[in-house]
């Protein structure tokens, strides 16, 4: 994946929420609004790392029977119009059940740049079943949490590709009132071991928080705040323009960081 020269803005949306046609529209609008990478969540029945907002978006997308195969098809379609890097965020069982080899193959064919699998830590990723992920062209983005010890950070940095996903807080995804005060220290800890960019996610939901996080890192990932707009706005077209407006405000804030 090529990295933006500016501070990166990575919006997250759940594929199929409210439906795949809207997801497609959102991707184009997010790119126009200043997104550098799109993080697409693949819905799962048991999204362990997610708070209520994103959980509900998964359940809505599953009601529409959105599958991993559908999302691959969507990305292939998007590729005719847009080159924006797309990464998948999904639970390990979806990759395992789909078949790791087949997953890598489809990702390559359809133009998926990378994958974040929050419940596949480096030890399991290095195991026989999953090691082809790392050997593939796909960026395998690993996460660092605030409580990850230093020697483990080093190992994660060695094994990760694309970027390092710094989880800003100990907890699940979701909107929080205040930003965690450990981000800066965590970024410094990671930077000692890698030249990869460090993007911060979990709990970043306002332009002010995005600016604050971007000041001490290479970019931010914003999910729940966007998904919440989609959940609250009944009209799909109004939801898309509200999200675009919100993401523009994030862009503006980050560019001022």
């Amino acid at each position: 994946m090529e990295f933006p020269k500016r501070k990166a803005l990575i919006p997250y949306i759940t594929a199929g929420d409210p439906d795949l046609a809207t997801t497609e529209k959102l991707i184009y609008e997010l790119e126009k609004a200043g997104a550098d990478v799109i993080e697409l969540g693949i819905p799962f029945s048991d999204p362990l790392a997610d708070g209520p907002v994103i959980q509900e978006s998964h359940f809505r997308a599953l009601k529409k029977k959105t599958s991993l195969a559908d999302v691959f098809r969507l990305v292939a379609k998007v590729r005719r119009k847009s080159k924006i890097p797309i990464i998948f965020m999904l639970s390990v069982n979806l990759v395992y059940k789909y078949g790791v080899n087949k997953f890598i193959e489809r990702a390559g064919e359809d133009g998926v740049h990378g994958v974040v699998i929050p419940d596949l830590p480096p030890e399991e990723e290095a195991s026989e079943k999953f090691k082809i992920l790392k050997e593939s062209d796909l960026d395998t983005i690993l996460l660092v949490a605030p409580n990850t010890p230093e020697e483990r950070v080093e190992k994660i940095c060695e094994q990760s590709s694309g970027f390092i996903y710094l989880v800003s807080l100990t907890g699940v995804t979701g909107v929080r009132k205040a930003l965690s005060d450990t981000i800066s220290a965590s970024v410094k800890k990671i930077k000692k071991h890698t030249g990869l960019p460090v993007y911060v996610g979990f709990g970043i939901s306002t332009p002010a928080q995005a600016k604050q996080a971007a000041t001490v890192s290479d970019g931010v990932i914003v999910g729940s705040a966007i998904v919440k707009i989609l959940a609250e706005e009944k009209s799909k077209s109004a939801a898309v323009s509200k999200v675009a407006k919100f993401v523009k405000s994030l862009r503006k804030a980050i560019d001022a960081a």
């Binding site: 362990l48 790392a49 390990v92 929050p118 419940d119 596949l120 830590p121 030890e123 399991e124 195991s127 690993l142 996460l143 660092v144 949490a145 605030p146 409580n147 990850t148 010890p149 483990r152 994660i156 989880v167 100990t170 907890g171």
Partner: peptide, 11 residues
């Protein structure tokens, strides 16, 4: 195995 988010690895 231990298929959990990074935050749970340390505990």
């Amino acid at each position: 195995g231990r298929f959990v988010p990074e935050t749970l690895i340390e505990p």
